[in-house]
């Protein structure tokens, strides 16, 4: 696996993941008649725990599911949500697809880049946020739309960005998922 995907992989993480405990794996495997179906659910768990899919996690997943490592790597690189290197604690997903673009998504992205001081695709130096351009989030009724974890924000205007970022910062510091922004977060 290493020779094929090394350039995209992050640093090694020696800490064993809870997502890889026998209990978790058995519980997920019990839903499917074939082991391989457990791959995406386990990848999600590994990523939630470590922040990204570490090379060790992918190797171990391959071993646990009796798959050649390349079959884990090809899945990890196919799907947009899997991260192969560390990113911000929160990914800010900004839709740039049609309904959002018609109502100013590019201006929203530019303002977000200004406020956070990084470009879309990059992570802030403090490691808190990554801006990600994403395709339609199925929130077109509230375009331009932003999603952070389970929360949706919209319609968002460039003028709302400072407040949105403040809200997200507070959430991170208090580690409290509830949002108090006047930009109503809707789950």
């Amino acid at each position: 696996m290493a020779s094929l995907v090394d350039s995209k992989l992050g640093t090694r993480d020696p800490k064993p993941l809870d997502a890889m405990t026998e209990e978790t794996i058995q519980q997920i495997l019990s839903r499917y008649p074939e082991r391989r179906s457990a791959l995406l659910p386990l990848m999600h768990l590994c990523q939630e725990e470590a922040g990204y899919l570490t090379e060790d996690a992918m190797r171990e997943l391959a071993a646990r599911l009796d798959l050649p490592p390349i079959q884990v790597a090809e899945v990890a690189t196919f799907y947009d949500m899997f991260r192969l290197k560390p990113g911000g604690q929160r990914e800010i997903w900004v839709c740039h697809n049609l309904s959002c673009a018609l109502l100013g998504a590019e201006q929203v992205i530019r303002r977000l880049e200004e406020v956070l001081g990084v470009s879309a695709g990059e992570t802030t130096p403090d490691g808190l946020f990554t801006i990600k351009r994403v395709e339609c989030l199925a929130a077109c009724g509230r375009a331009p739309a932003i999603q952070v974890g389970p929360d949706y924000y919209g319609p968002v205007s460039p003028n709302d960005i400072t407040e949105l970022v403040d809200t997200l910062r507070k959430q991170l510091t208090v580690c409290n998922q509830s949002s108090s922004s006047s930009l109503e977060a809707d789950r």
């Binding site: 391989r36 791959l39 995406l40 990848m43 999600h44 899945v75 899997f82």
Partner: peptide, 19 residues
Amino acid sequence: AGAYICGEETALLESLEGK
């Protein structure tokens, strides 16, 4: 895990099979 193509029913089934 983020792939429009998985809305196509046979791609969806491949994805559900872990591919």
